[in-house]
Design a protein around this nucleic acid. Structure first.
Length: 382
DNA sequence: ACCCCTTTGAAGATC
DNA sequence: GATCTTCAAAGGGGT
């Protein structure tokens, strides 16, 4: 199980995957040499160019976008046609050290975790910062990866956060730990602009960051929409409204309106794992670079990028995820992932029950609301 | 309105 | 202990 030990760098969870990934990457390089030559690529690209040239509509995609689509197509082609050879090799050399910044803040009001704005635009997502991003030596003030077609100032609007909420008790980083980017992976030592997610180099216009100049903490947990019983808010507590209201279907639609207005028991979500944290941070960037919107496609790219990361780069996210779990455990010591288990099946069953029995509730549903010990039922019975 | 897709990782469930 | 299942995020697309 990928788990980063508190002290050892060699305990990185992705060891096996990194090894296998490298093999896959090598295989893919060969495959690319044999099956998809540069000429093929150029032909395909030129066909796209011709296609757009013949279509002189105002909405014609730019060369940049075509390149994005093309590369993404190649990724998909390689991924699907070459079956299980996940071509991390496409990115293996492309992202030697990628700056991560555009991490949305799910823990702040109006953030992406906000029930009313869970589905937010790319621009909105870029406003905030993940609470644990404060562990990262990055700042939107120092690095703005915004592509030219997006607003450059995406760090001002809609974020209201105290400037120096020091919760170092929770998140204090070990000196020299992975939370602090070592010089070898710092951007200043990165001589080449990283390739975009779509395989082209795109220099960043802003100056490179200096980790020493970042605020120690600006922890938006203190402002999150969820409020723990201890008074400590946390994003994992999701009010049962908005998109995430599907996690609280215990309230039947036929219930009295008066009851519906009562504050509902919030749902405590699972802490994000390393890859999820990475996705949250990089999603906006991929969307901006590739003008893709479908999350499934974006996640494929992000998955490939994740494999292309070095161990040190991944370690940063494993460490963040570890701290996320630690904080989650501290805030909700009695919480278990089981609490959120079986929701899909239960929802379906509830629907069927509603149609047949008029919405009679199960013992597990009662457990969920009352906090009583869960009945020992097999998962299928849920 | 709701579910699926798609990714990786963590954790619970099952065998 | 190994394997399987579910859920975290995200948002377009399909029903």
């Amino acid at each position: 199980m990928p788990q980063l030990s508190s002290g050892g760098g060699d305990d990185l969870g992705a060891n096996d995957e990194m090894i296998s990934f490298k093999d896959e990457g090598d295989q893919d390089e060969k495959i690319q040499e044999n099956a998809f030559t540069e000429r093929d690529l150029a032909d395909l690209k030129s066909s796209l160019v011709n296609e757009s040239e013949t279509n002189q509509s105002p909405n014609a995609v730019s060369e940049h976008e075509k390149t994005c689509y093309l590369t993404f197509f190649c990724c998909c082609w390689s991924h699907s046609t070459v079956s299980k050879h996940q071509d991390g090799g496409m990115y293996k050399t492309a992202y030697p050290g990628y700056p991560f910044l555009m991490l949305p803040d799910p823990y702040i009001p109006n953030g992406s975790m906000s029930p009313s704005s869970n589905k937010v635009s790319v621009v909105q997502q870029s406003h905030g910062m993940h609470p644990l991003t404060s562990l990262l030596p990055y700042s939107n003030d120092h690095f703005n990866p915004s592509p030219p077609h997006l607003p450059t100032d995406m760090s001002q609007k809609g974020v209201h956060r105290p400037q120096s909420q020091d919760i170092s008790g929770f998140y204090s980083l070990p000196q020299g730990g992975v939370g602090q980017m070592p010089p070898s992976m710092g951007w200043q030592s990165q001589p080449v602009y990283p390739l975009s997610s779509c395989g082209f180099r795109q220099p960043y216009s802003s100056s490179l960051p200096n980790s020493s100049s970042y605020p120690r903490f600006s922890h938006s947990l203190m402002l999150g929409p969820g409020m723990h019983s201890t008074g400590i808010p946390h994003p994992a507590i999701v009010p049962p409204s908005g998109k995430q209201d599907h996690y609280d279907r215990n309230v039947k639609p036929h219930q009295e309106p008066k009851r519906e207005k009562e504050p509902k028991k919030p749902v405590i979500k699972k802490p994000l794992n390393a890859f999820m944290l990475y996705m949250k941070e990089m999603r906006a960037k991929v969307i901006a670079e590739c003008t893709l919107k479908e999350s499934a496609a974006i996640n494929q790219i992000l998955g490939r990028r994740w494999h292309a990361l070095t161990r040190e780069e991944q370690a940063k996210y494993y460490e963040l995820a570890r701290k996320e779990r630690q904080l989650h455990m501290q805030l909700y010591p009695s919480w278990s992932a089981r609490d959120n288990y079986g929701k899909k099946k239960r929802r379906k069953r509830e629907k069927q029950q509603d149609s047949t029995t008029g919405g009679k509730r199960s013992a597990f549903d009662t457990f969920k609301e009352d906090g009583a010990p869960a009945p020992l039922l097999p998962m299928e019975a849920l």
